[in-house]
């Protein structure tokens, strides 16, 4: 099935097997947890902000290949970006995986376009992104 191959591209499988920035982040200034109570997927995101700049980002947790690869590639995509840029990227990413937008994504994130053929998996792809957005919103709170 063509859609299946587009969903599970090798780059997604690679990030699932070897997630990047997969650790707790010492000295983080923002943190949030993403949890899908329906399926039990759960990720924690840590961000280290330098003013408006995302100086570092990391995550830990468990979930399916789509959710884990998405979290891993998100950390790569937003590291070094500004808070505003990360928020804009969230919107774009969300639109594309939900099948609601034609806009282009940064080349590396294009592999997630295939998720739109599997509506039930959109939540998997966006779980860590929602957590990231939430972490940015409460960035002045204490980080555990």
């Amino acid at each position: 099935m063509k859609e299946l191959d587009e969903l599970y591209q090798s780059v997604i499988l690679d990030h699932n097997r070897s997630p990047r920035n997969f650790h707790r982040l010492e000295g983080a200034t923002a943190h949030a947890e993403g949890r899908n109570p329906l399926c039990g997927d759960q990720f924690e995101i840590w961000l280290k902000l330098d003013g408006e700049l995302i100086a570092d980002v990391a995550f830990l947790g468990q979930g399916c290949a789509i959710s884990k690869a998405s979290a891993s590639m998100m950390t790569q995509a937003i590291k070094g970006k500004t808070v505003a840029e990360a928020r804009a990227l969230f919107e774009q990413f969300h639109q594309v995986v939900a099948g609601a937008g034609e806009e282009k994504l940064p080349a590396k994130l294009e592999v997630f376009r295939g998720v739109s053929a599997f509506p039930i998996r959109v939540k998997c792809a966006t779980l860590s992104w929602h957590a990231m957005k939430q972490a940015l919103e409460k960035r002045n709170h204490a980080v555990p």
Binding site: E3, C39, A65
Partner: peptide, 14 residues
């Protein structure tokens, strides 16, 4: 081993 149940479920569904 190495496969999350949701991914298996999606493939089986197809």
């Amino acid at each position: 081993e190495g496969i999350h149940p949701h991914d298996a479920g999606t493939v089986l569904d197809t």
